[in-house]
């Protein structure tokens, strides 16, 4: 047992220039820390691709097997809401990108503003989704509902007898598969948006409090990647769900 060295052994290994206060102990430099975060986020998104990938596989299989049912069922979605939501989400991607831009510039006020704008657009998207979902409930084309029927249930117009021709049960089953996929795909997508909006609010709060700076804003960038990913999923979902067979 020779010389006892004091137990505080932080300083020596880390070169000169002093450590950035946000640099965690086990990294050697801010560059290494940011690189690790960025790379980690990309790998996380990779798992997200495969998560949605499972559903896309199921979609492809059943679209191939039951194209007619998919075409008919897709026609029951309102293309205007779908298009509107696509524009909303693309816009939210723009505001997010601009948020990152202002984070890089160190402009905290504008950063906060764009983050909040992104939350707002996310809210609009979910609001529209709510309108669409509830329309499906009233039309009795929610697959888990016991009163599921195809073609969609229409409120009888006064004076006209209720004469709704029902499709054959096998075809209705295939339509159910379409709507099951519609609800899980859009449902998981919406879940991602809700989680994203929660994080956005926290980031906006932190940005308002002045946590971020020109040197330290990697969380904003990392979150931006996530938000854009959610946008990309929707870019594929829109034609796959709303535009199966729209031509006359």
């Amino acid at each position: 047992m020779s010389n006892k060295v004091k137990s505080d052994e932080h300083s020596s290994a880390h070169g000169h220039g002093g450590r950035h206060p946000r640099l965690v102990h086990h990294f050697d430099s801010m560059e290494q820390q940011n690189e690790a975060g960025n790379f980690g986020m990309w790998w996380f998104l990779l798992t997200e691709i495969m998560f949605f990938g499972g559903m896309f596989t199921a979609y492809t299989v059943y679209r191939h097997m039951y194209f007619d049912a998919f075409a008919a069922a897709s026609g029951a979605l309102d293309i205007r809401w779908g298009a509107f939501n696509t524009v909303v989400l693309i816009t939210s991607s723009l505001t997010m990108a601009l948020g990152v831009y202002h984070a890089q510039m160190g402009n905290n006020k504008k950063l906060t503003m764009f983050l909040l704008l992104t939350v707002l657009l996310g809210g609009v998207f979910l609001g529209v989704k709510y309108i669409e979902y509830s329309a499906k409930f009233t039309e009795h084309i929610f697959p888990a509902a016991s009163n599921f029927q195809w073609p969609p249930y229409e409120k009888p117009v006064a004076g006209h007898a209720e004469t709704q021709q029902l499709a054959d049960p096998v075809f209705t089953g295939h339509v159910k598969i379409y709507f099951f996929l519609y609800f899980v795909l859009t449902g998981f997508h919406a879940t991602h948006m809700i989680i994203g909006m929660g994080i956005l609010l926290v980031l906006a709060w932190q940005s308002w409090k002045g946590k971020f700076s020109k040197e330290y804003h990697s969380y904003i960038e990392l979150f931006g990647l996530y938000w854009h990913f959610v946008d990309i999923v929707w870019i594929f979902l829109f034609p796959l769900l709303y535009l199966v067979d729209r031509h006359l």
Partner: peptide, 16 residues
């Protein structure tokens, strides 16, 4: 990073 992105889409292609 580019490779990582490509990997995601290649694997999506494999399963589908």
């Amino acid at each position: 990073t580019k490779l990582c992105v490509a990997l995601g889409f290649i694997w999506l292609f494999i399963i589908v």
